[in-house]
């Protein structure tokens, strides 16, 4: 889907709702996975894949496509759901998440899943991979852009800042980092484990363009992505404040839902909340 053809805000919200439902179903069927971070990223993934990014789902290897690197690879259920809905593969595959022989590995494997641009799951590496892609895009004089979605916990990894420093050195304006800033990591809140604030200051000290938004406010997300596209002096980071487990009351802001699959009863209760 080419950028701009896409949906209005209401239909994007509806897609995000569907992706949340798909993610929870998948994780339930798999009996394992990371619901919290899938739900927090759902609106951001929707805005990217169904509005901002230049893609051809019928031609996954189209050289001019925009790239997406899910650096927080454990949030892949929501990405798989988006790719299925865009037609990269038959949605029936979603039922096979994490099962033997599946194309949908527990963490993204670019050689197994159509539509994936990178293999990820080891936190802190995705921005570097995206930076490599962005530099080559510029070298090849192609207009594609590269989006990297980072979790907040992985900002503890020094490698993220190596990449931040290097991206600014090369002024790669075709690189956009989106932080799913749900402020919870595996062992606790960011503040308890390793504080991140003032986060914009950190990125700005590396000469990045830094924006902060509500990561569940669809118009705000679209605005920020447009602003990143129009910023031509260097890379942009969108710090998107989100809620882990967003959309399901008993999962919201709950540390325990980082990496646990809902059982049948919990899934049913969640689907009631998310609506038909």
């Amino acid at each position: 889907m080419a950028r701009g053809q896409a949906h209005d805000v209401d239909s994007l919200r509806e897609i995000a709702r569907q992706l949340r439902i798909d993610s929870l179903r998948m994780i339930h069927l798999a009996g394992g996975g990371h619901p919290g971070g899938s739900l927090s990223a759902a609106d951001l993934v929707t805005a990217l894949y169904f509005h901002e990014m230049n893609l051809r789902s019928e031609e996954p290897d189209w050289p001019d496509r925009d790239r997406f690197v899910l650096s927080k690879g454990h949030g892949c259920p929501v990405l798989y759901a988006a790719l299925a809905r865009l037609g990269y593969f038959d949605p029936q595959h979603l039922d096979t998440l994490r099962k033997f022989g599946t194309i949908l590995q527990g963490h993204p494997d670019m050689n197994k899943t159509p539509g994936l641009d990178a293999t990820t799951g080891s936190l802190g590496q995705g921005l570097s991979v995206g930076l490599g892609m962005a530099l080559i895009g510029r070298l090849d004089r192609r207009a594609y852009r590269v989006f990297v979605m980072l979790g907040c916990g992985e900002l503890d990894e020094g490698q993220v800042w190596e990449a931040a420093m290097c991206a600014a050195k090369y002024r790669v304006a075709n690189l956009t980092a989106v932080i799913d800033y749900n402020q919870l990591q595996l062992d606790g809140t960011n503040d308890e484990i390793m504080p991140l604030e003032p986060l914009e200051d950190k990125w700005r000290s590396f000469n990045w363009n830094a924006l902060r938004i509500d990561g569940h406010d669809m118009p705000a997300i679209l605005d920020a992505l447009r602003a990143a596209r129009e910023h031509e002096q260097g890379p942009t980071v969108i710090i998107a404040k989100t809620i882990k487990g967003k959309g399901v009351s008993f999962m919201e802001d709950q540390l325990d839902w980082h990496g646990v699959a809902p059982n049948a009863e919990q899934l049913e209760a969640a689907l009631v909340e998310l609506g038909p």
Partner: peptide, 12 residues
């Protein structure tokens, strides 16, 4: 570390 992953992106 950054260099190694940048190379991955370039190879992709």
């Amino acid at each position: 570390q950054n260099m190694m992953c940048m190379a991955a992106g370039a190879a992709i």
